[in-house]
Design a protein around this nucleic acid. Sequence first.
DNA 1: GTAAGCCTTCCAACGGTTGGAGGGTCAAGA
DNA 2: TCTTGACCCTCCAACCGTTGGAAGGCTTAC
Lengths: 153, 153
Amino acid sequence: MNIGETSRASGVSVKMIRYYESIRLIKSPLRTESGYRVYSDNDVHTLRFISQARDLGFSVEQMEDLLALWRDRSRASGDVKAIALQHIDALQEKARALQAMSDTLQHLADHCQGDDRPECPIIEGFASAVAPEAKKRQPRFGVTGIDPRAHSH
Amino acid sequence: MNIGETSRASGVSVKMIRYYESIRLIKSPLRTESGYRVYSDNDVHTLRFISQARDLGFSVEQMEDLLALWRDRSRASGDVKAIALQHIDALQEKARALQAMSDTLQHLADHCQGDDRPECPIIEGFASAVAPEAKKRQPRFGVTGIDPRAHSH
DNA sequence: GTAAGCCTTCCAACGGTTGGAGGGTCAAGA
DNA sequence: TCTTGACCCTCCAACCGTTGGAAGGCTTAC
């Protein structure tokens, strides 16, 4: 199976398959005489797993753990569970952070008339909300693991 | 007020203030004879607004809209509310997806506990959960406007 | 006068993904 | 057999938001 077919079967773009290989997330496949990459059904399976995890905001670093969890089926179940629980905590924390953002916005929106008059609590809330000295400067989105790219150019 | 003082007053780093200027999110400030940037209280206010919106996961692109609305006294609060509500939906959807992933992993962890046999059908199910042809390839994190950087290096 | 701490610009890196250039390979149809 | 078009290859650059660092100028206090 060549890379294009593999891409269609897995839902991972050709570009990303090659990228994942370059960062050693997946292993280098065999090549034909002419240099074409050749993949197996198992590789497709792995890529589908990766795609799934990426869709939910896992970093590549985390995916290495997840892949190990997935592949190392004969490992001690205690170790496996520890890794799984760690990822669950991370997921819960991300979901919580997103929910907090949503709640804050919802609260502001609730107090906004939404008509054509200029008064708007959302805007006012943004402008005056936080005393900056109370803010701890920490990685702004480190918790959430989601990306701000708003458009594919 | 120089840039350092402005940074401390607004909670936006010196680097980011210059970056926001470079992408024209904020306008270029006046300079002293020696080239130092000079900011007003109003600029601090604007930066605080920006910082707040970024904390809530708005992209720079979205902030341009919000800033325009903020500055335009005649804007309809309905416009602002529409942007906020759209954002709330995106955040909710992302939180929901993360929660589903967490549930799946929890299920996996529960099942694997104390089981020394290599078979793990739940892992198999997780790996092949999504039929790739059912996936629409869309900007992966475009909706939420949040960033995957997990660590400040 | 000198050291500390500002400030300036410029250049690079991160992660994850995409686009494109410039070129080789394969299969089908004329 | 020869061409055509769809594939494949590698390499380089861009995107976003943010940070770090280098190399140098300015201001202030001792």
